[in-house]
Amino acid sequence: MNTPQPAAPPSTLDLFVAFSLVGLTSFGGGLSGRMMVEFVQRRRWIDEEAFLNGLALSQALPGVNVANLSIWIGYRLRGLRGAFASFCGMIVPSAAVIVLLGVLFAHLTQFPVTHAALAGAAAAAIGLSLAMAVTTVQRLRRRAFPYVVTVLTFLAVAWLQWSIVWIVLGGGCISVAVEYLRLRREARGGGG
């Protein structure tokens, strides 16, 4: 509430540069935390409540969360052009770096040691994914329904190898509908 606002909102170029810097200096996730520090606390471009609203929305909607959040922040600050500049800043420079890394490793694969090194790095990176899975499971509601959905989704993807597009559209819609009805019931039951 008391966060002082700057005199003028950032230009689209400011947005592009700022999002590029956050993207290029973040490794292995944690980007939304970095964005909060950078845009809410340091640059004070938006207040915390607006940021957290955008974060909740980015996580709720389909799409890559950090890309969604970049669009949300950019839109609030500079409309359509701001959304575009922030999105491009987050994606394009890092995409260029990843292609350069691809070129580098394409040359390195002629050495057998590269394969062992990549297997080791992949193993450590799988740990990042597994940690994320654990965190997501820990944040499930402590009821049977969400756990059943998780197990069924895992089996459908890993074992039956169904297309996840249909799993998200089918299973996701059912699961969201159940949660929506529960929230509505709770709001009524709680007198709200």
Binding site: A119, I126, T136, L140, T153, F154, L155, A158, L183
Partner: peptide, 29 residues
């Protein structure tokens, strides 16, 4: 927004676990 988040999270959890399973199977070493 709350229903979307709460409803999609278990689906996402199952999908991330499947990702780990598939990557582990392809992992050398």
């Amino acid at each position: 927004a709350l229903a979307l988040e709460a409803g999609l999270r278990p689906v996402a959890a199952g999908m991330i676990l499947a990702t780990v399973y598939v990557l582990m199977r392809g992992l050398d070493g």
